[in-house]
Amino acid sequence: MREGRQRLDKWLWFARFARTRTLAARLVSDGFVRVNGARSDNPAKALGIGDVVTVAVAHATLAVRVTDLGTRRGPAEEAKGLYEALSEG
C-alpha cells in the first residue's frame, strides 16, 4: 500500500466503527460504507487523510473526515483522534 494510505477495513476497526476487523470488512462489502461520496465494496480500498467516510450503522448514518491513520486499535479516546465528525449520529 502506498505511503500515507491505509486499508479501509483496518481504519474502520482502529476508529472503532466495528468491533472486529472481520465485521469492518463485512460493513464495506455489504455496501454500508461510502468514501468521498462513492459506495465502496472493497475492504482493501486505500484511505488517506482528508477522505470523507460515511458509515450507515444501526439507527444512524455517520459522516466523518479522516484526520489520522491509526497504528493500533486503542481506547475510545485514541480512536476519536482518527476522525472529525461531520454529522451528528
Rank of each mutant, 00 (worst) to 15 (best):
T67N: 13
F17A: 02
F17C: 00
A56R: 15
A85F: 04
A76Q: 03
R72C: 06
R34W: 11
P75R: 04
A15P: 14
A44K: 10
V55A: 04
S40A: 08
H59N: 15
W11I: 08
R39T: 15
G50R: 08
D51Y: 09
E3N: 14
T20C: 00
S87P: 05
V57Y: 09
D51E: 05
L23Y: 02
V33Y: 03
V64W: 08
L86H: 06
G4V: 15
L86C: 05
S87R: 05
A18T: 07
E78Q: 04
R65Q: 11
G50S: 06
A58M: 11
G70F: 08
G70H: 00
F14W: 06
R72H: 06
N36K: 05
A25P: 02
A18R: 00
L8Q: 03
R19I: 01
R2C: 12
L69M: 07
V55F: 05
L8T: 04
A58T: 14
R16A: 01
W13A: 01
D41F: 15
A15F: 10
N36S: 11
G37W: 12
S29Y: 01
R7G: 12
L62S: 08
G81E: 05
L69P: 07
G37C: 11
P43C: 06
M1Q: 08
D9L: 00
G70V: 08
G31V: 00
R2S: 15
H59C: 14
V57S: 12
V33G: 03
E3C: 12
R16V: 01
S29A: 07
G81V: 02
E88G: 12
G81K: 13
L86K: 04
S40E: 05
T61I: 12
A38H: 04
W13N: 02
R7A: 13
R39D: 14
V35F: 05
R2L: 14
L82D: 01
A25S: 13
P43R: 02
L8S: 08
G37K: 10
E77M: 07
V33D: 04
G48T: 11
G74T: 07
L12C: 04
A38N: 07
V64Q: 06
G70P: 06
